[in-house]
Amino acid sequence: MDIFQYDFMLRALVGGLLVGVICPIIGLFVTLRRMSMIADALSHVCLSGVAAGLLMGAQPVLAAAAFALGGSFLLEGLREKYKNYSELSIAIILSAGVAVAAILIGLGNGFNGGIMSYLFGSIVLITVEDIYVIALIGIPVLLLTMFFIKELFAITFDEETALVSGLPVKLINVCFMALTALTIAVSLRIVGILLVSSLMVLPVAVAMQLAKSFRGTLVAAVATGEVAVLVGLMCSFYLDLSPGGAIVMTLVLMLVLVFALTSRRTATA
């Protein structure tokens, strides 16, 4: 296939397949904890990180990761302050993220449109350096999540009982927020800041229609994420579409297909 003759496409595939694994795993816990909007808030903080990186000549993905980490700790602190209105903390962080980004983009005179590739993703502009950063952050995130999986399950299912049982709930919550922030930062080069939360949530939405067990849901979500990344990148290459848009639309179509299949199965039964 001529698609593999291009170095930029190979880089996009390597990066895409890695984030296609990490995003649905983190996304499953984010969804089950009813925190889907947190991914959106942190991705907007990433936008200010990218703008800061471009303005100061730093690696934009690394700068986004640093900003997202800071944002995640602030978010966790605000969630403690507004225990009964935790969505307020999401709104505060999201607004602050966009506000800082608007100021920085203004200061950088729009970076000659360069910020657009971070908003919607770009396969052509993914550099070898980007792939190193994605792997350097992404692989430890993946490993840590797998090591914490039983604790994350217990806390997600019932935080109060997990606390009584002696699990370090606060520590794991902070680590989870940090892992979520880093996942968003490494994914933004592939799917873009505005669509990264979709790669976390939509595969889970598909998987929850298909699987009945937690393990099954996890596997189905990862498989969905990988298929969507592959199909989306192919469409992006052959049809000259934005990769983020193509990946997310593939996920939406998969969800529609699964809804159709499951409703048909229910009707037959």
């Binding site: 399950f153 299912f157 067990s213 937690f214 393990r215």
Partner: peptide, 22 residues
Amino acid sequence: NRSYPATVLEVVISGRAAMRGL
């Protein structure tokens, strides 16, 4: 957690997470 995507065994075994250790 009425609609939590997990089997009975997965939920029960999760009770041993703290006992097993990090």
